[in-house]
Every structure is written in structure tokens, then in C-alpha cells.
């Protein structure tokens, strides 16, 4: 192998040993990642692709069925239902969450604010709690007959809601868990980005007579473009895989199907149902790949959309 120096790099004068050390070291240092990821990430992923072309049940051998599983999946109403639920829960949890986080970050960005540390800490604590714990607590809050939320609604003279029973109400309840856990975290991230915005921009805007609200929309939001994209993509990746919240919300009996009408079964739950309840490894693997493609597609669309919105 010849000496191909990386273009652009300010090549220092070093010995042959130094260059070798750098090159070999480079590979050696990233090797653990690729080895472990290869074994526990890449191989399973490729293997999943192979499995998805087979019919494979518990305690039996796989038979090759080509793309049958994919055709079956696309014709399976349970799949479309789960896809819709996933999307719906993602939208209901992400959009208000982002708006709320932006707002809270803006408020926290007040320079003369007292008790900053406490408020920031309050933003952090929900996020360090496990999803399972959050699920258990919120399931009790959203109980139909003795849940706190219904007690509250009733005290306000409103009707109680059977949270699990319908699609909209169950989605709202599940989204609440997601929002509670992530709004604060995203607030901190947005806050950090806000603080990095050069103050001159505000000064200029202020001299142009822009009020605080105008400043927010003409300076803050556009400057946060990259961060908003980042936050959205992260929430997309998480949102498409949502599993524990609906699982715990459903208690023990109806959890995996997401209710009697599959009203809150997400794609990850559907995958789990096929893979580890029905032990249809072929079909479950098919769902996994389609889920992956959906996530990839969403991330790309997201990137494009958010870019455009932020630019306008």
C-alpha cells in the first residue's frame, strides 16, 4: 500500500513508524466498535433480512417462502392499524412537546431568572426515570374507575373517560407519558442552543423595533433550525419504536395486542406479538425490516421538511 496522505490534513513531519502507528492505531481504536456492533448489530440485522424470507415457527425449522411475508404484511390490516397508531402517537406526543419545549426554553432563557438550577433540575428528573416506572405511575393515573385523571375531570364537572377503550383517548394517554418524560430534556437542549445564539442578532432586531415575541420568531426559531431538526429526528427514531409505554398502559392482559380493538397497538408491539407471542420469526422479521424502512424514510422526510420550514 502506498503512502496516500489524507487531503487537507496538515501532514506533520513524522517518521514512518509514526505514520504506521497512526494508521494502524486508527483502525485498532475503532475496531472494538465494529466488532461488537458487527456481532450484535449487523449480523442480526442481515440475518433478520434472511429470516424475513422464511416461514419459521417456534421449535420448528425455517422454510423459504421468498417475499410472501412482505406481501402478507402489506395486506394485513393489523399492520396498517399498528402503523397508524404509531404515527398518531408520535404526532400527538411530538408536536405539542416541541412547542412546549421551545416555549419553556424561551422562558428559562430569561437572563435574570432566579432559581435557574431548580427549574433546570425539574426539567431533567422525568428523563432519568425509567419508561417502565413512568408507565406504571401513569397507568394508575389514567385508570377508568379509580384513576386520578378521571377524578380530576369529574371534579371539574367533566365526563370521565375510559382511557383505554378508544383510539383517541388511549393515544392521548400514552402520548402524555412520552411528553412527560421528554419535554424537559428537549427544553434543555433547545435552551443550550438558544444561549449559543449571538446576542448581536437580538440587539439588531431590538433596534429595528422588534418586540420580544417578534424576536422569538425572527431570530430564535430560525437560529435553532439545526437543533430542532436534531430533536425531531431523535424523537422520530424513538417514536417509531415506542413499546414500553403502550405495553404497561395495557396492564397484563391486553397489553400486547394494545386493547381489544388493537386501538393502541404500535408497530413494535405488533412485532413483539408476532415474534414472541406467536413465535412467527419470519413474519416478525418482516415487520422489523419494514419498521426500519419506515424509520429511515421518516428521518429523511423529516430532515427535508424541517429544513424547509425552518428556512421559510
Amino acid at each position: 500500500m502506498a503512502t496516500t496522505s489524507t487531503p487537507g490534513g496538515a501532514a506533520p513531519r513524522t517518521s514512518l513508524w509514526g505514520r504506521l502507528d497512526e494508521r494502524i492505531g486508527g483502525y485498532a481504536y475503532i475496531a472494538p466498535f465494529f466488532i461488537v456492533f458487527g456481532l450484535f448489530g449487523l449480523i442480526p440485522i442481515l440475518f433478520t433480512a434472511w429470516v424475513s424470507l422464511h416461514q419459521w415457527g417456534a421449535l420448528s425449522d425455517p422454510t423459504f417462502v421468498s417475499f410472501d411475508n412482505y406481501a402478507r404484511l402489506l395486506a394485513d390490516p393489523r399492520f396498517w392499524n399498528a402503523a397508524f397508531n404509531t404515527l398518531s402517537i408520535w404526532v400527538i406526543s411530538t408536536v405539542p412537546q416541541l412547542i412546549l419545549a421551545l416555549f419553556l426554553a424561551h422562558v428559562l432563557n430569561e437572563t435574570l431568572l432566579r432559581g435557574k438550577g431548580i427549574f433546570r433540575m425539574a426539567m431533567l428528573v422525568p428523563n432519568i426515570t425509567s419508561v417502565l416506572a413512568v408507565g406504571i405511575v401513569f397507568s394508575s393515573i389514567f385508570g377508568r374507575d379509580y384513576g386520578l385523571m378521571n377524578f380530576l375531570l369529574e371534579s371539574l364537572g367533566l365526563n370521565r373517560v375510559d382511557w383505554q377503550a378508544s383510539q383517541p383517548s388511549s393515544h392521548v394517554a400514552i402520548s402524555t407519558m412520552v411528553m412527560w418524560r421528554w419535554t424537559g430534556y428537549n427544553t434543555l437542549i433547545l435552551l443550550a442552543a438558544m444561549q449559543a445564539i449571538p446576542r448581536d442578532l437580538y440587539e439588531v432586531a431590538a433596534m429595528d423595533g422588534a418586540g420580544r415575541l417578534r424576536q422569538f420568531f425572527t431570530v430564535t426559531v430560525p437560529q435553532l433550525r439545526n437543533t430542532i431538526i436534531f430533536v425531531t429526528i431523535v424523537s422520530t427514531i424513538g417514536g417509531m419504536q415506542i413499546f414500553t409505554e403502550p405495553l404497561v398502559f395495557g396492564g397484563t392482559q391486553q397489553a400486547i395486542t394494545g386493547g381489544a380493538a388493537r386501538q393502541y397497538q404500535t408497530l413494535a408491539l405488533f412485532l413483539y406479538e408476532q415474534g414472541f407471542r406467536n413465535f412467527q420469526f419470519g413474519y416478525a422479521s418482516t415487520i422489523a425490516w419494514v419498521l426500519f424502512i419506515v424509520i429511515l424514510g421518516f428521518s429523511v422526510v423529516n430532515l427535508l421538511l424541517t429544513r424547509r420550514i425552518a428556512r421559510d
Binding site: 456492533f37 440485522i45 433478520t48 424509520i295
Partner: peptide, 19 residues
């Protein structure tokens, strides 16, 4: 490496179990 962050955990879970 960065792209692998997009891979959902569930994708490999069945083979991961077999491995």
C-alpha cells in the same frame, strides 16, 4: 457509525436472541 443510530433495536432482536 452515525447511520447505525437509526437502526431500531427491534430490528435485530429475533436473531440477536438466537445468537
Amino acid at each position: 457509525v452515525v447511520a447505525t443510530m437509526m437502526v431500531p433495536l427491534q430490528l435485530g432482536v429475533v436473531p440477536l436472541f438466537m445468537i
